[in-house]
Design a protein around this nucleic acid. Structure first.
Lengths: 226, 226, 226, 226
DNA sequence: TATGAATGAGCCTTCATTCAT
DNA sequence: AATGAATGAAGGCTCATTCAT
């Protein structure tokens, strides 16, 4: 499981805005990485601060030196992930009903899948938290809304004829997100053929199965597990 | 023994297999209904046994008279829901690339949505639990596998040409399930137009946007919220 | 140290107003008595919930069944004590510059001393808490204000000529309260002669050492310790 | 070594008896002043070492360079205060039942009030600590004993006729100390009229309200607050 | 001499589960 | 069959004190 450290850019800066020296930075990083690992392994609720500090090989006191509480650490991770995902969603090109459009779509889906896989642990824990009355729920909702709005505006600019671009965007996002989630939890094998399928469905839903469609040949052996 | 309520078919039978008199049955019913309400409102982890017995207007002692523990109640609800959903999934007719096929598909999706809405609280809590080391995860995975297998076999029997029926089925299930979930959590407005969109995408992904497609006219005003 | 159980009248009723059966009542009583003992012995801050439940021979869980937290228990005790003390303060008769007035005064001081002694532990802990930003401080301040106002009104109705009855009342209350506190903490020996001294000073401060004064003979042997 | 400030005379000498350079002295001063401020503002228990070093604009490490622990700083402050107060108490002149005696008494009370006001924060925190098992309690007790003994010996040498000079001294000290405490905590308005009242009561308790009494006229407007 | 970072024992509080009636 | 009371094992968080630079 690749570490997500690259994201840790804005995370773990204590509220007081204290400047961190090298050592402090290292500790924050250790805690963040430990958070990703533990939240991913046990989920949000079952993750104990104790587990996190144990993995980070540090102490309770140190944890609370950098994060106000468990929520705070998780929120930090989640915000970073949300930001990066939004960037990827934004990176979609123009949807055209030809081979170029299909390829663009497929690449975009591949990028999304890659990012999803990278932040799997955080996203996994996230779904668990969406229900809380806390403002986490809003975070997820906002993210979804952002995804949908961006994709919908691309659809509207495209020659695709769909009755309701917003709903179509939502459905596509739902499919993509959930398939990646299944891949993450091992309920299905991720990989090229999953991306192909998603691309094909998305393309078909916008433009029908028409001409431009040229799928990477998929060996029949690659199948959903279970 | 007449069905207590759609949910209560097999649940609440005390471990000892003792026959329940009328009073006991009533108590079980109260607990189950309370469980649905509380799990739905607060999610699995945040739901306290205390909340449940308060809603059921009974006592802790009584709760443990009928259920081994919190898990036990939840599992009971979840199993019932799973069973009913499987039935609905099974009820899909033959997929043909004509108007009849489209209508069948749409009706099937409507049934699914209706059921999903009915058991929303349980399903909602379910997603929270999928991660646990407990065997709940397996329950969800099995259910998903069942859905996919059934839908895939229908696709295979149809004239649809998709590179990987299993993956296509998975993607469709993912889309449908997740959209209904969004509708449930209020992140999107459920209703006819959402079902139309799901039907259209599903149909297009199998048969292209071709002829048979005849969509219920959707007033442009009905849009995704947020 | 006599137990203060008689006061426990209104204390320990859980917020929800739950009706307590005999067993619950007993437990509440045990906790209250334990609270008095522990707060008295260690003071407010040093008193641990753990100490209290150990003394009460019950469990942590049980403590929180009846009291929201440490504060809650203490507040309950303090409110009761405050109420009783206010009654005693109120019970002062008319201040006349004769033997009857002196006797009345002395009896009043004796009653006050008796009550102070009885609730020593709570009062002791109280002084420690007066500083907090919490509303405890206000409780103490209100109590003092009530004492002073009542005594001042009596002074005003009496023939005593003092420049400022409010301040005189305050000074007297201060003296009486603090002497009893010293007696409680063992910094001075309480008893008849202390009450005589307080009565004499109070009487003199209001009416001079004049006529009415007839002191109980005090054997020279009774002296302040230390 | 010149007195750093009234409070700082003996404090802050590190255990090792090392000589402090200018910089060290400055640091000690900052810590002591911060201690006065923080202990006064929050009380002993609620005062955090963290608060103190923040106010002193220094670090935890530095704190423990000069003081063994939190107690140590407080003890240092308290000892100094105790010493100065003892000096003031000692400075009482001869108690005579005439105007000169009254004036002397009043001046003495004014000095006491002034000192009390100056060290209010420390004294305030002190009361909180009297209960602890630590040896602080002894410090307060010793101080009180010293006060009482000194005042009692003056009373014995005076023509005052009181049944028990020790107890009378105790009561007077109690009144004076507590009134000043009330003034400090804002429960009463300190000032000239409070001192007048204390002087009047003290004088009356020793000599009756007799002749020598000549009170500073008190404008009726100056009244106890609350 | 100074300091930021780290530590960990200790405390309060919650809540699933059991017990006595 | 039902219930109110009791339990105690965790878990989150604080803060005095020590450490490494």
């Amino acid at each position: 499981m690749p570490k997500a450290s690259p994201t840790a850019s804005r995370v773990g800066t204590p509220a007081e805005g204290r400047e961190l020296r090298a050592r402090g930075q290292r500790t924050v990083r250790k805690l963040i990485d430990a958070g990703i690992e533990v939240f991913g392994a046990k989920g949000y609720h079952a993750a104990r601060v104790d587990d996190i500090v144990k993995v980070a090989k540090t102490s309770h006191g140190t944890f609370y030196l950098y994060f106000a509480n468990k929520d705070d650490l998780f929120r930090a991770l989640a915000l970073d992930v949300a930001q990066e995902m939004m960037q990827v969603v934004d990176s979609i090109g123009s949807l055209t009903p030809d081979a170029a459009g299909y390829d663009m779509l497929r690449e975009w889906l591949a990028r999304f899948a890659e990012l999803h896989g990278r932040y799997a642990p955080v996203i996994r824990a996230w779904t668990e938290v969406e229900i809380d009355t806390s403002d986490f729920g809003r975070l997820g909702t906002d993210l979804l809304g952002g995804f949908v709005a961006r994709l919908a505006s691309r659809i509207e600019k495209s020659p695709a004829v769909v009755p309701d671009p917003q709903l179509a965007a939502l459905a596509i996002i739902a499919m993509v997100e959930r398939c990646n989630y299944y891949a993450m939890t091992g309920q299905v094998e991720g990989g090229e053929s999953l991306i192909d399928t998603l691309a094909a469905i998305t393309f078909a839903s916008l433009f029908g199965s028409a001409s431009g469609r040229k799928m990477t040949p998929v060996s029949g052996s690659r199948r959903a597990r279970r």
